[in-house]
Design a protein around this nucleic acid. Sequence first.
DNA 1: CTTTCCAATCTTGTATGCAAGACTTGTTGC
DNA 2: GCAACAAGTCTTGCATACAAGATTGGAAAG
Lengths: 244, 244
Amino acid sequence: MQDLLPQQNDQTGIDEAIVSAILSARIRPGTRLGESEVASLFGVSRTRVREAMMRLEQRGIVKVSPRRGWFVVEPSAEEAMMVYAARRVIEAGLLRSMEALTEGGRDTLHAHLAEEKLAIAAGDRQRLTCLMGDFHIRIAELSGNTILVEILRDLTARTILISLIYQSDFHAMQSHLGHCRIAAAMEEGDFLKAAELSVEHLDEVETGLDLTRRPDPLADLRHSLSLPPQNAAASSNAPGNAKP
Amino acid sequence: MQDLLPQQNDQTGIDEAIVSAILSARIRPGTRLGESEVASLFGVSRTRVREAMMRLEQRGIVKVSPRRGWFVVEPSAEEAMMVYAARRVIEAGLLRSMEALTEGGRDTLHAHLAEEKLAIAAGDRQRLTCLMGDFHIRIAELSGNTILVEILRDLTARTILISLIYQSDFHAMQSHLGHCRIAAAMEEGDFLKAAELSVEHLDEVETGLDLTRRPDPLADLRHSLSLPPQNAAASSNAPGNAKP
DNA sequence: CTTTCCAATCTTGTATGCAAGACTTGTTGC
DNA sequence: GCAACAAGTCTTGCATACAAGATTGGAAAG
C-alpha cells in the first residue's frame, strides 16, 4: 500500500494522488482505501480523506460499501461497454468538431508518439499504460475545452481499471499504431477520417477484452502467494491432497 | 431561500434537491448556499451538507469561495462557450452513434414534445425551462448509456444557469421547433441529420445569448426592491436627490 | 469434527467543537 | 465630512468524538 500512494505532497491533493496512481496502474481495481489508512499516509484527518473520496465517487473512480470501506471501482462488463461507448461518442464527436491543427498541436502529438515509442522500446509497461491513456487526453486538450478534457480523463482512468480486469494481454504496439494513424489523419487535416479511426481504435481495444472474465477478488493475495493466475488453483487440488 | 429548496425528504439527497432546483430555475446563479443554512433546512448537520457541496463542486454546479461560502456557479462567457461546445460534441456524437429508434423511444419523444406544447400553451415558464433541458437528456437515455446521461444532465444544469445570466428573452417556441425537427429526423431513422440539426439547434440557442453581459451581483436585491433591471439605477440619480 | 452463536474489533456515518480567515460596522483621528 | 482602523461577527476548514453496522474469531453445543 505504501508503494501505491507515493508520499505526494499535500498541495497536489489526495484526489489527484489517487487518480494518478490509477492512471499509471500502480493501484488495482477493487483495492480497499480505508479512510484511516489514507489519512495517516497523507498526514491528515479522516475528514479530508472522506471529502476526497466523495469527489472521487462522483467521478466514478471509487465506490463506498456501507460501513465496510471505500474501494477502487471494479467496472462490470456492462459498465465497461458503456465507458467505451461514451469514449467513442465523445472522442469521435470531438475530432469531427475540430477544424485545424496548429503547429504547436502537431508538435505535441509528435512528442507524445515519440514517448510512446520510447516506452515500448524500453518495455516500461507502467509508463506505457499511462501514455496510452494520455494520448486521447492530449487530443482533447488540443480542442481547448477543459470540460471535455476532465470528462475524458475520468473515463480514461476507468478504462485503465477495465483493462486491468478484463484485458489478458497488452497489445501495446497495436495501440501505438492506432494512435499514429489517428495523428496522421489529423495532420492531413482530415478530422472526419481521424474520428473514424478513433472509433475503430477504441473498438479494437474493446474487442481485445475478455468481458466474460469475472473480477477476481483474490487476485492480489494470489499474486502475493505466487499462485497460478485465475482458475487453475480452484479446480485442481494441490498435489498430496488427494481426496475422493 | 425557503422556497428555493423545498423540504424534499432526506432520502432523495441534498445534492439532487439542489440540482433539481437549478434544473427548474428555482435558484439563480450566484446564489449563496451557506452550510449552516442548508443544514438547518434539511435538518442535518453541516457535515452532510459539506459532502454534498463537494460532490456538486465536482459536477461543476457550485463553487466555494474560501472562508466565504458556497455559491451556485456563474459561468463566465468563456465557460459558457465551452459548455455549449461540449454539448454539441457529445449530443451530436451520440445521435450519430445511434442506429435505430425503438417503438418505446418514439413514444417517449412524442410524450415529451406533447408536454412541451402543453407548457408553452400554459405559459408555465418554470416548467418549460425544465422540459427544454430534459429533452436532450431523454435522447441520451434512449441510448441506454447512463454515463452519458449523467454527463449531459450536469451540462444541462450549467446550461440553465448560463441562460439565466446571458439570455435576455426565452425563445421557447423556437427551441420547441428545434426539438420537433430533431425528433422527426430520428423517427425517419436519419440520425446523421438529427445530429446536424442538434448542432444547429445548440448553435441557435448559443447565438441567442448576450455573452457581453456581466452577471449582476445585485440582481436579487434589485428585484426585491422592485428597481428597474440592470443599469438604469446606477447611472441616473433617484428623483429628489439632485446634486451638481 | 462441524455448525451455530456471541462478543470483540474494526469500519464508516454523523455530529460537534474549535481555530482561523473574511467581512461588517462602528469608532476614532484628521 | 471622510478616510483609516479595529473590534466583533460570521463563515468555512479541519480535527475529533461517539454511534452503529459489518466482520471476524473463538467458544460452546450438537
